[in-house]
Amino acid sequence: MSIPIPSRAQLKGGLIVSVQAPEGSPMRHPDVIAAMAEASLRNGATGVRLESPEHIGAVRNRCPNALIIGLWKRTLPQSSVYITPRWQDIQAVWAAGADVIALDATARQRPEQEDLAELIQRSKNELGAPLMADVDSIENGLIAASLGCEWVGTTLYGYTEQTAQQTPPGFGLISPLRDQLPEQVTLICEGGIKSPDSALKSLEHGADLVVVGTAITGVDLQVANYNKTLKRQNG
């Protein structure tokens, strides 16, 4: 069962740890994900962001009081939208025990011609689910909030066709979004946060919460990057 969602004021200044692992990694086992999530929470994380119903369920069982932002990455034909793209994916994430459902809220065409506004409305009416809009621009963040998303994150800045030439973090989105979003909407900086200093910088720009993933839990990518750099140095 989902926990009551803290208000924006209660969440302000918090850290959400994205506990994920790539396909094929031994870190992707539900027990490993759950252990990393528990370690994050024990050390002060406000909540965790998890991918797939299996991992959401594992963490919910191990950490029943955790604040869980859930999503499901799905690669589907004829659409580049992959973060909780369809109604059936939203249902699965909610049923697994997420407190907030993260979904792609960009302007891109969704799989099976589903409509973002209809998905948001259906999530509210049929599930009563709080939603986090993963966006790539100021415009799409404002649209998502107007459609009913309680949380807006800069997650997809630099990862869509329209922003592919940009490099996250999306610091430039934060202040304009905070100025224009409704007071009650929680604003999250996510993507490209590589150090405590850059996390602090996102708060200084006006973010309420910071999501950090690879820099904390991305063992596969971190080790690969270290090795790549060391090998380059050795010629």
Rank of each mutant, 00 (worst) to 15 (best):
A117V: 13
L119R: 13
E190A: 01
L103M: 12
A164C: 03
Q184M: 00
Y82H: 15
K231N: 15
S2R: 15
T106P: 11
P182R: 10
Q180A: 14
W72K: 08
Y226H: 12
R74Y: 11
D179I: 02
P26C: 11
P196V: 06
E112H: 01
R110N: 08
R28Q: 15
V212T: 08
R86V: 01
V93G: 00
L221C: 04
Q20D: 12
R60F: 02
P168A: 13
S79R: 08
L76I: 03
E183H: 11
A133K: 05
K201T: 15
G172M: 14
G14I: 13
N140G: 13
I5W: 08
A129I: 03
L15Q: 02
I193M: 06
A199D: 12
I101K: 07
Q78T: 01
A21N: 06
R42D: 09
G218Y: 09
V19M: 11
V212E: 05
V100E: 07
A207V: 08
K73Q: 09
R74T: 05
L119E: 00
R49Q: 02
L67H: 13
A224G: 00
E183S: 10
L173P: 10
L103T: 03
G153Y: 06
G97E: 05
V211D: 11
E23A: 13
R62C: 05
S40T: 03
K124L: 11
M27F: 05
P4S: 09
H205E: 13
L221A: 01
A9Q: 15
F171M: 07
L127E: 05
